[in-house]
Each structure stands twice: as structure tokens, then as C-alpha cells.
Simulated scan of single mutants.
Amino acid sequence: MSAKHQEMAEWYQRAQEEILDSMDEELEMELDDDRLSVDSGTTSSVSRQTYFKELFRLQGELVKLQDFVVANKLKVAILFEGRDSAGKGGAIKRITQRLNPRVCRVVALPAPNEREKTQWYFQRYISQLPAGGEIVLFDRSWYNRAGVEHVMGFCSDAEYEDFLRTVPDLERMIINSGTILIKYWFSISDEEQYNRFMMRIHDPLKQWKLSPMDLESRRLWEAYTKAKETMLERTHIPEAPWWVVAANDKKKARLNCISHLLSQIPYEEIPHPEIHLPERVHNPDYLRGPVPPEMYVPEVY
């Protein structure tokens, strides 16, 4: 075998290893999700082989969508809403996993500070909307007012009613400005939320996900249900409809959500010129300085 062929063979082997490493990243997240699933009785009807095959295929389509958004300077805003532990974060991770963070970014705003409380309610959300060539995923959104703020008494009845009355017009304005707005509600059953909360309670790696607010939301399940029903009824408009994701099965929910998202934007594959790696410049006068051994991270593994 010639030196050139040997080099290509070694490169191909390295490329295969990189692909496997990328798959391992997703496998690690899946194993983390599944660590206590046997004890909780929650298993997916989608086989692991099918799940990975479809996920990687859909993520490849998301890359094509990203290229199309950039090339056409589209503005895409996607809202993810649902009860605590419904799987919004897991779906968002799988959508963004292979995408450019400069194109696709996640917005997860904390509770408003004292200054923001004096502003127009929508102000801090509007400033996060996408510019041309951007995709913005809202991990919870302005619909906090229709859910947690209303149920927990963080807003007045008048503020709540004003929100429900005005948000359809606001969303129409957002859409009329050229933004593609997609709204998802992740729906889980009472029993499934109980199982997921119990998993978090008994999992030291996930206990941080349970806040006092989450625990209170569990106690107030029926109040949140009523608030959700009112929200969907009052804000499901033709220009910006709600799409409900059946989320008791996490794997199916992710695949269904990504597949549906891809169907909402008529994208096309953008052709790219063939990439050629330029020859590296070698300067015979350059001498690489030594790195002191104490600067290296200890190789424990």
C-alpha cells in the first residue's frame, strides 16, 4: 500500500471513530434518561435501534433546515410549553445537538427581576425573537403568565385576562413581521408525571431538577390542568395554532416533534461547493516552544 493510500485509510478510520463518538454522545444521554426507567415502569414502545436510526436521520434533516434558514434569512421561533418533567428540555437537546449555536439558540429566561417587573410583560421575550437566519427555541415562553404565574398567584386576575386577550394579536404581529412561529405543548398524564418526579427524587444526579415550584405544581395538578385548557382555548388561533405532543413516551415524543417541526417549513437542501483543505504553510525558521509539564491536565484515564 502506498503512503498516500495508507494516509487515506488512517483518515477514514479516524472519521469512523468520530462518527461513533458522536453517536456515543446521544447514547450517553439516553442511558442517563433510562437509568431508573425499569424501576419506574416506564419503557418506550420504540426500540433503541429504531430510535437511534430515526433520530440521526431527522437530525440530518435539521441540518438541511438550518442551511435553508440561513440562506434565505428566515426567522423561526419555536415555543416549548408543558408541565414540569414533560420532556421539553430533552426534545430541545435533540433538536440543537447537531446544529450551529450561532444559528440555533435556546432561550430559557429566569424569573423577571425587579426592573423587568415594571416593563411591558412581553418586552423581555420580544427582545429574544430571531433575526434573519436564526432559529430560536423558547424553553418556556410568554405563556408563563397563562400557567405558573396565574396558578401561583404571581399576577393579578386583570393581568391574566389582559394577557389572554392580547397575546393572539401580538402573535399575529410577530407573524406579520415575517417570523415563523410554532407552538408545542408537551402533554403527559398524571401518572407519568408522578413517575418522573419520583425518579428525580431518588436520582442524585437529577434531584437538582426538582424545585419547590415543581413540587407545588404537582400538588396543584388540577389547577394547572384548568389553566392549560383555558390557555389552549383562548390562544389557539389559525395563524399560530397549538400543536400537542403526546409525551408519555419520551422517545416517541422527540421523534414526532422533530418530524412535525420539519414539516412546518418547506425547506430545500442548499448545495454547497466542494471543500478542499489547503496545504499547510511550513516555515523552516519556526520552532515550536516547549509546554511546561505542570501545565498539562493530569491523565487520570
Results as ranks from 00 to 15, higher is better:
residue 175 I to E: 10
residue 175 I to L: 12
residue 177 S to C: 13
residue 178 G to H: 08
residue 178 G to W: 13
residue 178 G to Y: 14
residue 178 G to Q: 10
residue 179 T to I: 13
residue 179 T to D: 11
residue 179 T to R: 03
residue 180 I to A: 11
residue 180 I to E: 15
residue 182 I to L: 14
residue 183 K to E: 11
residue 183 K to S: 10
residue 183 K to C: 13
residue 184 Y to R: 01
residue 185 W to F: 14
residue 185 W to A: 05
residue 185 W to H: 00
residue 186 F to Q: 00
residue 186 F to L: 01
residue 187 S to C: 00
residue 187 S to P: 02
residue 188 I to S: 00
residue 188 I to W: 01
residue 189 S to L: 04
residue 190 D to W: 04
residue 190 D to Q: 10
residue 191 E to I: 00
residue 191 E to C: 03
residue 191 E to M: 08
residue 192 E to I: 01
residue 193 Q to T: 03
residue 194 Y to H: 09
residue 194 Y to S: 02
residue 194 Y to W: 10
residue 195 N to Y: 15
residue 195 N to K: 15
residue 195 N to V: 05
residue 195 N to W: 11
residue 195 N to T: 06
residue 196 R to A: 08
residue 196 R to L: 07
residue 196 R to C: 12
residue 196 R to V: 09
residue 198 M to T: 06
residue 200 R to Y: 08
residue 200 R to W: 05
residue 202 H to M: 01
residue 202 H to I: 02
residue 203 D to W: 09
residue 203 D to G: 05
residue 203 D to I: 04
residue 204 P to F: 12
residue 205 L to Y: 13
residue 206 K to G: 07
residue 206 K to L: 04
residue 207 Q to H: 04
residue 208 W to E: 04
residue 208 W to M: 03
residue 209 K to I: 06
residue 209 K to L: 12
residue 209 K to G: 06
residue 210 L to V: 15
residue 211 S to W: 15
residue 211 S to C: 09
residue 211 S to R: 13
residue 211 S to H: 13
residue 213 M to P: 10
residue 213 M to I: 15
residue 214 D to Q: 12
residue 214 D to A: 14
residue 215 L to S: 08
residue 215 L to E: 09
residue 215 L to D: 07
residue 215 L to V: 13
residue 215 L to F: 15
residue 216 E to G: 03
residue 216 E to D: 08
residue 218 R to H: 13
residue 219 R to I: 02
residue 219 R to E: 14
residue 219 R to L: 08
residue 220 L to D: 07
residue 221 W to S: 09
residue 222 E to S: 02
residue 224 Y to F: 15
residue 224 Y to W: 15
residue 224 Y to K: 01
